[in-house]
């Protein structure tokens, strides 16, 4: 929670175009507002983009595509579902989604964290990347659809499968196709046929536990889950087989 002396700013977003809504967010943050509640959000895109200060924004409704794109610092809490491309090229801050998120969640993300309570769509964390101190993380409470971690170049991707029925498995295929950096932790088992050609399953070590545990603790705190229960089940760790899988693709 961000320490906040100013009162919470309420904005009714019904009928507001995203440009107007983002302008108002920018102005508010500029005057030192540090907590904003958006009501009646229906599909406005790019919310929170271009904000570089710590501010907490609560969204009630269904934010549009590219939520938090290029965002650098704020915490956005969605009380509902998010659409496609949330966290696109996000540089810092947090997205906490009390619901599901769509395709390409965490697309090209380069910093910050995304926590999704339920399922996610296709191509989550596609081309997520890391550089020096910047190491983004995406934690999914449910399961994911195909091409999870496609072309992933860095960062940490965690899929917990908490809403799977007993005996139900993750069904994503083409996991990590083109992956060449970063790491994936999937709670439960994944068959070899579900993996892209560029990833392999490797054993977890003590070092992995130090990466995974704090993320699970944070996830559990956001959504009221039990850490021990989550960590009780074994994880599958997936890592790229090469840092440059297509180096020979166009060279003979």
């Amino acid at each position: 929670m961000i320490e906040c002396v100013q009162p919470t700013l309420q904005i009714d977003a019904l009928g507001l175009h995203y440009r107007e809504l983002n302008n108002r967010l920018r102005q508010a943050v500029g005057t030192g507002v540090c907590r904003i509640e958006l009501q009646n959000v229906y599909g406005q895109r790019y919310l929170g983009t271009d904000l570089h200060q710590p501010v907490e924004i609560h969204i009630h409704g269904t934010p549009g595509n590219d939520l938090g794109s290029f965002m650098d610092g704020p915490r956005i809490v969605v009380h509902g579902n998010a659409q496609d491309g949330c966290g696109n090229t996000m540089n810092g801050g947090e997205l906490i989604i009390h619901g599901r998120a769509g395709d390409a969640t965490g697309h090209s993300m380069r910093g910050g964290r995304i926590f999704v309570r339920d399922d996610v769509g296709y191509r989550v964390a596609i081309h997520m990347k890391e550089y020096e101190g910047q190491r983004p993380a995406v934690v999914i409470g449910g399961t994911a659809q195909h091409f999870l971690g496609e072309y992933m170049a860095g960062g940490i991707l965690v899929v917990l499968g908490l809403n799977l029925e007993p005996g139900e498995r993750h069904t994503a295929s083409f996991i990590g196709t083109g992956m060449h950096g970063g790491v994936m932790y999937i709670r439960g088992e994944v068959d070899d046929y579900q993996l892209g050609k560029e990833v392999g399953s490797v054993s977890l070590t003590e070092a992995d536990d130090q990466i995974l545990r704090p993320l699970v603790e944070e996830f559990a705190a956001h959504f009221g889950q039990d850490v021990a229960q989550i960590l009780d089940r074994p994880f599958t760790k997936l890592a790229p087989l090469s840092v440059r899988p297509y180096g020979q693709l166009y060279a003979y």
Binding site: V41, Y42, G61, T62, P63, G80, N81, Q83, G102, Y122
Partner: peptide, 26 residues
């Protein structure tokens, strides 16, 4: 390989299909 989006939803005896969830919620 779902290169374009589709969201499905139900309410009562209605089926909704749309490119995004927001219009259905509206």
């Amino acid at each position: 390989i779902r290169l374009r989006p589709l969201t499905a939803a139900t309410r009562g005896s209605r089926l909704y299909l749309a490119s995004e969830e927001a219009p259905i919620r509206l």
